[in-house]
C-alpha cells in the first residue's frame, strides 16, 4: 500500500493531539509512517502512542542540530525521505512551524503545497476555508508529491493499532541549513492548560476583562471546561495576558469545537483567528457588538457576573 508520511508535532517527545488526527487522516490515503524529528532520546516517549494511532513505521531522526536551528534541518530530512520513499502524500500540522517546514519541502522537492486544510479526502483533495470562512475551496496538488498542512481539530483522532517499526535516520544537517540559529528558548506560558492550537474548547477574554487580575474569572471558566485560554490583541497589548495566547490574524488561528468569547467585540482581525470554530458563544455587555453576528449563543450581560455564575453552574452539573 502507498506510504503516507506524517510529521510528528511534539513537545519534548510527547506527541500533540494533532499528530493523532493526522495519523487518522493518513490511514484513509494509505499506510501511515510517522516522522519523528527531535533532540536525542526524545522519541522513546512517542513510539507507543504513535503505534496506537496506526503508524506502521516511525522514522526517527534525533540530533541536537534539529532543534538548534529554525525549520531548515527538518525540511532537509523530510525532503530526503520524500526522495527515498516516494510517499503519496506528506501531512504536516498547520502550526507556524509545520507550515514553514512544508513550504521548504515543497521548494526542495518541486511539489505543490496546500496549507491550512480543514479536511482531506482519500484521493488527496483538500478542503480549505478561505476569506474568513466565507468561501470553501476544494483543491488538489498537481505537481510532485501531495504536501498538505492540516489544521488541528479537523478530524477526531481514532485509535487503530500499527506496528510502529522504528527506522533510525542518519542525521547530518548541512551547513546551508544552519543559517538561523536558535540561541535561546524562553518559556512564558502558564503551564497546566491545553495548548491553544490543540484544545477542543477555548475560552478567550478581551478588553472587557479590564485588567490582568480579571483573567482569573476567564481561567476559572476554562479550567471547569478543560479549556485553553485565549485573548484578544487588546488584552495582550495591555500586558494582561501573554502574547502567545493571542487569537487572531497575527495571533493563533484556532478552530475548536467550542469557542467562548468574553468581553471581546469581534474585530475582523480577531474573527480571522476563530471564525472556523464549530460552536461560538459570546458574552458581551454591548448588544451591538459584532461578535454576536457569529455567535451560536450570545449573552448580553456583564462578564463579571455571567462568567463566574457559568463556572459555578458547570461545576455543579459535573458533580
Amino acid at each position: 500500500m502507498a506510504e503516507v508520511l506524517v510529521l510528528v508535532d511534539h513537545i519534548d517527545g510527547t506527541p500533540k493531539k494533532v499528530t493523532f488526527e493526522l495519523l487518522t487522516k493518513a490511514r484513509e490515503l494509505g499506510e501511515p509512517s510517522a516522522v519523528f524529528l527531535g533532540a536525542p532520546g526524545q522519541s522513546a516517549a512517542a513510539l507507543e502512542s504513535l503505534g496506537r494511532y496506526g503508524a506502521q513505521k516511525v522514522y526517527v531522526g534525533e540530533s541536537e542540530e534539529i532543534a538548534g536551528f529554525l525549520t531548515a534541518p527538518k525540511a532537509e530530512i523530510i525532503a530526503q525521505l520524500v526522495q527515498d520513499k516516494s510517499p503519496v502524500a506528506v501531512l504536516f500540522p498547520s502550526s507556524a512551524e509545520g507550515k514553514e517546514v512544508a513550504a521548504r519541502v515543497a521548494v526542495r522537492t518541486g511539489s505543490g503545497l496546500l496549507a491550512d486544510a480543514v479536511d482531506l479526502d482519500a484521493d488527496g483533495t483538500a478542503t480549505q476555508s478561505v476569506f474568513g470562512g466565507g468561501v470553501e475551496v476544494k483543491a488538489k496538488v498537481t505537481v510532485g508529491t501531495n504536501l498538505v498542512t492540516i489544521r488541528p481539530n479537523s478530524t477526531p483522532p481514532v485509535e487503530q493499532a500499527g506496528a510502529a517499526t522504528v527506522e533510525q535516520l542518519t542525521v547530518s544537517v548541512s551547513d546551508a541549513a544552519k543559517g538561523a540559529k536558535i540561541v535561546e528558548s524562553v518559556v512564558e506560558s502558564k503551564g497546566g492548560r491545553p495548548d491553544l492550537g490543540d484544545a477542543s474548547v477555548v475560552v478567550s477574554g478581551g478588553r472587557g476583562v479590564g485588567a490582568a487580575e480579571g483573567f482569573g474569572v476567564i481561567e476559572a471558566l476554562a479550567d471547569s471546561l478543560g479549556a485553553a485560554v485565549g485573548a484578544s490583541r487588546a488584552a495582550t497589548d495591555a500586558g494582561w495576558y501573554p502574547h502567545q495566547n493571542q487569537v487572531g490574524q497575527t495571533g493563533r488561528t484556532v478552530s475548536p469545537q467550542l469557542y467562548i468569547a468574553a468581553g471581546i467585540s469581534g474585530a475582523i482581525q480577531h474573527r480571522a483567528g476563530m471564525q472556523t470554530s464549530k460552536t461560538i458563544v459570546a458574552i458581551n455587555k454591548d448588544p451591538e457588538a459584532p461578535i454576536f453576528e457569529l455567535a451560536d449563543f450570545g449573552l448580553v450581560g456583564d462578564l463579571f457576573t455571567v462568567v463566574p455564575a457559568l463556572t459555578e453552574e458547570i461545576t455543579k452539573r459535573k458533580n
Binding site: 502550526s95 538561523a180 535561546e184 528558548s185 518559556v187 512564558e188 506560558s189 492550537g197 501573554p242 502567545q244
Partner: peptide
Amino acid sequence: TESGYDVV
C-alpha cells in the same frame, strides 16, 4: 512560539 519566544 507557542510557549513563549525564541531568540534566533
